[in-house]
Design a protein around this nucleic acid. Structure first.
Lengths: 231, 231
DNA sequence: CTTTGTCTTTGCGCTGGCGCAAATAGATTT
DNA sequence: AAATCTATTTGCGCCAGCGCAAAGACAAAG
């Protein structure tokens, strides 16, 4: 792998870890590389490993019985995910599927080892709980939004969220690389509606559109729409 | 109070606690009684206390800027809730509002004390994480349902969930005491739609309806609807 | 038994958003 | 440069579900 043990401190959960702890974690881990579109694990698989993404981008999603899918969140480098096995035990099932959005590498850490390690390292449990609480808050908000807000607002919010997570600043705004379908899954709608709504925004000069590309020209305008002040 | 320290062991997080630990927790706690309709705390308040419900029923909800509200979950006796302050610190804000559905009593435990206690009691952190992971899984599923399923299915699921949490068995089925409005908030729709959908179910003999009452006659029929196999 | 308040039902009209299908536009391969 | 593949746009029709408003049903209080 192309990173040193100390790089692991970029992972919030490990920020207070001793050198020795980091070594131990690594010795109980393997690295996995996956290509764009491939799956790291599926919903229902036993949660043998917890992961830290070391490069690339991965999305977590759920599918319902009839195959429709919903994006729950996108993971960026040095984020930890799929840690539930370290709490419930490695025989618990992953509640989500993880799919690579680009060629990616991830560190796969034995759930069981982390679980044991937590018994004696309060900082680890504390960090993991921190992660969980912030995630709970985010998904609660998104649930509320989905239940009470209309599509325009939800799409605007999805774009704003992406902006702060993975937006590339260019001279004429902020650029995102996502398809209409991606945005639809993130905002709980269909690609048709996303296309229509964003086309209208383009007419108003809020964004510029391309194939698998969205350039945000006027973020403040989107904020107003997300807040429901527009219209 | 009308419970002994040992009753606290019914709280999953405290099931492995020593007698001494329980005493300590209680000495850092106060009890609060609230009447039906009153609020235990509001979204945005500093998270000074974590709670254990000792009697009654409490719902957690979020409101959006324009006042519309969404039920996130209902708390039953001996469940712990609002524990985020014990992770983030007592100055964090509650992300939800807690309102009593009936006259209730709750044990309010100082977040800061729990936070310190967790440093030296791995069982506590482990229990809390267990709680969080199961909650994350539930809300993720509900998010997916809201995004991909139609109203009928979501109402059926809401009823089934309630059945397992608070259903009273009577000779002719399982009885729930919730208003149409309650069910609407739990399934992300309106009381009108709930009324119409359930009226149709009554015609089909799946349920029997009354004022603030739903008697489920044929749970299996509801399961089929929830799975989307019906229609 | 009447009144008052709350919960529920239902007729009615409306519209936001869905989704097919066909056209168009980029990107990639040969 | 042509062919192929995938992403996107847009016309069109449709309907699930919303929400007002008015009526009905039930419960508790006087």
């Amino acid at each position: 792998m192309d990173f040193s043990p100390k790089d692991l401190r970029q992972v919030i959960v490990f920020k207070d870890a001793t050198d020795d702890d980091l070594e131990q974690v690594l010795s109980h881990s393997i690295t996995r590389s996956i290509e764009e579109g491939e799956f790291l694990f599926f919903q229902g698989d036993p949660a043998t490993y917890a992961y830290v993404l070391t490069s690339g981008q991965v999305k977590l999603l759920q599918t319902n019985p009839s195959g429709q899918q919903v994006n729950l969140r996108t993971i960026y480098p040095w984020e930890m995910f799929a840690a539930l096995g370290s709490v419930r035990g490695p025989s618990a099932a992953y509640p989500v599927t993880a799919q690579a959005l680009e060629n990616s590498t991830a560190l796969a850490m034995k759930s069981l080892f982390l679980k044991e390690m937590m018994q004696t390292r309060p900082y680890l449990a504390a960090g993991l709980m921190q992660l969980m609480t912030s995630y709970i808050q985010e998904i609660q908000s998104r649930y509320r939004e989905l239940a009470t807000e209309r599509v325009e607002q939800r799409i605007a919010r999805a774009l704003l969220r992406l902006t702060s997570q993975s937006g590339q600043k260019v001279d004429k705004g902020i650029e995102l690389s996502f398809s209409r379908q991606d945005v639809a899954e993130m905002s709980g709608t269909t690609l048709y509606t996303v296309s229509r709504v964003m086309a209208e925004w383009e007419r108003q000069g809020l964004v510029q559109l391309g194939r698998e590309q969205i350039r945000i020209i006027n973020p403040h305008g989107l904020v107003k729409i997300a807040e429901g002040l527009e219209k």
